[in-house]
Design a protein around this nucleic acid. Structure first.
Lengths: 168, 168
DNA sequence: TTTTATTTTCAATAATTTTTGAAAGTTTAG
DNA sequence: CTAAACTTTCAAAAATTATTGAAAATAAAA
């Protein structure tokens, strides 16, 4: 298979995985495109490559920058902005994990903890409820812990398998 | 806070977490409701509790049964079907993880592997691409491995923290 | 300053996903 | 068998989410 087709297939595949995990398809595709490209791309180039509008590119690139996984790069003599995604996927994984943990999981844990404490009723039903909260907190907490461990493992651990970032 | 309000808040919270992870809100809420209820519920009771239509209940309960995390239960002398979610959240976590792994992650890994092998071109770009595939496979594979480990840890490990399933 | 290039915003539109509700199907009871 | 109780299906409607595109804002060049 030639490189161009492979890139397209990879971008599609990645986009559809993203979709089923609640991540905007375009966002995943922009990111995939940047990862697969050995130079910084302008908004126009992204529009062209993915056949999407300027507004869409702008919004999604900005979101990726917010996530901290894409950055602007200035190109000498060019007025336009260019964008890069660093190719160390491990970093990306860490970033995304941290962000989602903070934004989505932790607030939920907080609510569940409050609920556990706030229900002081003495019925069997209330007991069941408190136990449920406790169990959910256990599992979610364990999951959170797993992620944290993975995040901290850095440099060591499975990292040895990684192809190091190609500096540009 | 009284139990009813707490249940409602919990069901809402859980539903919104589900939404941001690409899981249907109603599905998560039906499941949350069943978990928080100390008896099997009929379709009518679910409709009433969540204020949703019969069709919606039917579809989502069926989906939950497909996931293997809700089951039908027969009640003596009743013609209706009743539904229960087992309260061992650990089991649930394992089931959901296994299912999503199988349905969503593994096919993607397969595509990426193929792409890695199929691109035989010799340019620097192709090299970058192959490295990217390798890295993505590493991370995804590691993640998969983590989940697998967690799934297998069963009985031992963090499980000791769990409130055991209340048999009904 | 004015002009030109570029980015950002956001209301309108399109696409997708979810939900409804009534009709069709099924099962059980009489 | 027929009627009643209940479940399933699915086309249409509603809700949500993503995308466009053109106008407004910003920044750089002339």
């Amino acid at each position: 298979m030639n490189l161009e087709d492979a890139k397209i297939k990879y971008i599609q595949t990645w986009g559809s995985l993203a979709t089923s995990w609640g991540i905007n398809k375009t966002m995943a595709q922009v990111h995939a495109l940047l990862l697969a490209t050995n130079k910084a791309l302008s908004a126009d180039e992204i529009m062209e490559a993915l056949k999407i509008s300027r507004g869409n590119v702008n919004m999604n690139v900005r979101a990726l920058i917010d996530w901290g996984i894409v950055r602007k790069e200035f190109v000498a003599g060019e007025r336009k902005e260019f964008f890069v995604a660093d190719k160390d996927i491990w970093e990306l994984f860490k970033q995304v994990t941290k962000e989602r943990k903070k934004r989505e999981i932790e607030p939920v844990l907080k609510v569940l903890e409050e609920l556990q404490n706030d229900v002081s009723e003495d019925s069997e039903d209330a007991e069941v409820f408190r136990k449920l909260m406790k169990d959910i907190l256990s599992v979610t907490g364990m999951f959170n812990g797993l992620l944290e461990k993975a995040i901290k493992a850095d440099e060591h651990w499975l990292l040895s398998n990684f192809t190091k970032l190609i500096k540009r």
